[in-house]
Design a protein around this nucleic acid. Sequence first.
RNA 1: GCGGGUGUAGCUCAGUGGUAGAGCAGCGGUUUGUGGCUCCGCUGGCCGCGGGUUCAAUUCCCGUCACUCGCCCCA
Length: 415
Amino acid sequence: MQSLRGTKDILPQEIHGWHIVEDRIRYITSLYGYRELRNPIMEYTEVFKRAVGEDTDIVGKEMYTFPDRGGDSITLRPEATAAVVRSAIQHNLTAQQQIARVYYSGPFFRYERPQKGRQRQFHQFGCELLGASSPEADIEILTLAHDFLESLGIKSRELHINTLATPEIRQLFKQELISYFTAHLSDLSEDSQSRLQSNPLRILDSKHPGDKALSANAPRMQDMLDTESKDHFSKVLSHLDSLSIPYTVNPLLVRGLDYYSHTVFEFTSTALGAQDALGGGGRYDHLFEHFGGKHTPSIGFAFGIERLLLAMSAQESISEAPKPEIYVIGFESEESRRAVISCAHALRTLSGKQVIVDVQNRSLKAQMKEADKLGVKQVVIIGPEEALHDTCIVKDLSTGMQHTKLMTELHNMFS
RNA sequence: GCGGGUGUAGCUCAGUGGUAGAGCAGCGGUUUGUGGCUCCGCUGGCCGCGGGUUCAAUUCCCGUCACUCGCCCCA
């Protein structure tokens, strides 16, 4: 028996990093007034098909989709935004021109070949700012993401940013691209040829050398921007400038999901290998309408938690897990063992410190060894002698100093 | 979905056509009530799984599963 391919057990010895990240998630989101939204991990397949787009890789080949017992087509969520929007509409989270600031964190599923930084079940943390179309909304999301990465101490990273303008402009741009690439059809990779009609934007961020060469000279969205798009984008950039958040405008950044418009961005890290995206996001002004909701311009981002942890451990910025503080040792006599149990219990309740006790009836020596290995600061020894006199020996493991104390004195030390 | 690499003790890895070793870790002793450093000893392995070749396979061949790196794409 073993875990499914591409799924991982997160073991006690590695949980500390997760707790750090989860702690930062709660802290940073709270600074910005974002509240958690917990959606189910499965939805009707239609939710993702409609939001993400039929021609995207996610929907085309990566979804965990299956019929349930009632015959409905169910999908394990491959991303969050679609479900957040579905949920926002269903519960009217943006009623009466209100905006909603939400975040989420949890497991997601994509049926792909695993590799470094890619699993079939992985975890994402993301934020969505629903109902605001201003560049200031974009900046709030970007700075939140920036602050989050900073607080985790992730250094070797870059922010790439681009604008996809309005759907109308993008439609025009697509036509331009199609005619440009069609003129060079034979130089295109097979993948790109098949995408040419359905999703020509995607050819732009292909890593295929031939495609790259063609893309470098392809028509540019920048040259076709309307004043509104141009204005929006330049405001976002100037805000980034004044906040001293470094970025690179990358005209080839298009992102793999259909629902984006205007600002799109991606955080990459050199610590990651081939899957170098820590996370990304963008503006989706028309997704609510796709679901039959009212016009609700929105923007959000998502980070891959496993990738954050990879980047953090690559630069060794994960702090050490806290160590237990007290080890209470007893041995040989029944009285000794009994005294240990009640002493440990009292210390935990009085001091709130982590107190470890041997549960294998091992020797004094063995328990001392374990205390040392665990890195505890203090050891309390209640041997048969001490148990008879209601005393104990308190030993500091770093100095080796030890003193005999009455049990009542010990309790006073920690209360 | 496609290509490369790997799969031997808890971990990191050596190794040979005649069913296996090291270091670290663990446990015990050196110290008959005291950890860390020595030194000594011990425990521990269907050599990923299935099949084939062979007198004999952990070693060679095929398949399979998993991991891993890359492609595609994304977190």
